[in-house]
Amino acid sequence: MKNSEIISIKGLIKRFSIGKGYFTALNGIDLSFDKGQFAGVVGPSGSGKTTLLNIIGSLDSPTEGIANVLGQDVNKLSTKKAAILRRKHMGFIFQTYNLLPVYTVFENVEFPLLLLKMSGAKRKKAVMDALDWVGITDKVKSRPAQLSGGECQRVAIARAMVKKPELVLADEPTANLDSENSHHILQTMENLNKELQTTFIFATHDDKVIKYLKRKILLEDGKVTSDDIITN
């Protein structure tokens, strides 16, 4: 593993049992990601994008092969150690935002810092900074139900970024957004990637996202069919 390499995947296979048989979602994936990459796993529905992201995020484990993420072998991690890995080093952005409905915007963004047991004053500053990055400081007291889809996703980005993680995994982050909001969100993430050197990995089939990617990995039927670095 190189110094700048934060994810190394070798011979990754993931099978799901269906009835008496099984379905192979990922079939021999070899990939590596360097720190600060703005990469996307693209492909049609059912190609295995989300499964790959789940394994990288240590929410799932491979059937075969090795997935080394931030120096940890995902297959050998206990659920507790996997939780600690996610808590300290990863941020997640979901298609359906997954904001906690009874919390305010401030409380939603504050949540990952509570898990890190950060002091109150530091927490407040970090939350306000994160909300400032995504331009939503005027909605701190609102609840998710009072926000538009674009605003919800901006809160979700702030929540993922507030602890300044090394890795952010975004699963179809623009699927529920209109074009204008999608671009705004993607620009925000692009800026954060540049400013904080956070590695972003997207799972998407949205062309709007693909336009922003610096690396595009095409996944078809559980196999990587192309892996391109995009230079503007």
Binding site: R86, F92, F94, T96, N98
Partner: peptide, 16 residues
């Protein structure tokens, strides 16, 4: 369920 999944994704252990 989504909330529980989100808690786990954000780093809460199952026991937590």
């Amino acid at each position: 369920q989504k909330e529980i999944g989100t808690y786990i994704a954000m780093g809460m252990t199952r026991i937590q």
